[in-house]
């Protein structure tokens, strides 16, 4: 399937792209557009103003995607808290990783194009997932 989002990928879009590929559509193709009117007709838009998979009721797009696709994995919801804070910084959650992740992805978006940012952040979120999966099983920070 095709998916579309705004160009100039940052944390919420990078995290959504990872989530889509890992849990919703393994063959997902992504288009990055400058204007909502440029979204291809056959693509599902995300993290754009006015679309279903965007910010709603104080949630960031990553949280919206989790709700929409009924993904209840607690590890994904832990990552959602980090993405939420890195994106919105509204202190709804305690996520000390967020400022660091925000800077890392913001820096990547300065040196790489959108395809590359999505490619590079994939393993980053895989690692974040594994860390929090182990933390969840252990009930404490692993290693």
């Amino acid at each position: 399937m095709k998916w579309a989002t705004r160009a100039g990928v940052h944390i919420d879009r990078a995290a959504c792209a990872w989530l889509i590929r890992r849990r919703i559509d393994a063959d997902a193709e992504f288009a990055f557009v400058d204007d909502p009117s440029r979204v291809p007709a056959d693509a599902i838009p995300f993290d754009m103003r006015g679309v279903e998979l965007g910010h709603h009721g104080g949630d960031c797009s990553f949280e919206t995607v989790l709700r929409r696709y009924e993904l209840t994995d607690p590890v994904l919801w832990k990552i959602a808290e980090i993405v939420h804070e890195a994106d919105l910084d509204d202190e709804r959650y305690d996520a000390p990783e967020a400022p660091g992740l925000d800077v890392i992805v913001r820096g990547l978006s300065m040196t790489c194009d959108d395809e590359r940012v999505v490619e590079l952040t994939g393993p980053l979120f895989d690692g974040l997932y594994e860390y929090h999966r182990r933390a969840f099983l252990l009930g404490r920070p692993p290693a």
């Binding site: 940052h10 103003r49 006015g50 965007g54 910010h55």
Partner: peptide
């Protein structure tokens, strides 16, 4: 981006 999301929230 921040103001764009607030605009959407105001619309909602």
């Amino acid at each position: 981006e921040q103001l764009d999301w607030i605009a959407q929230e105001i619309g909602e």
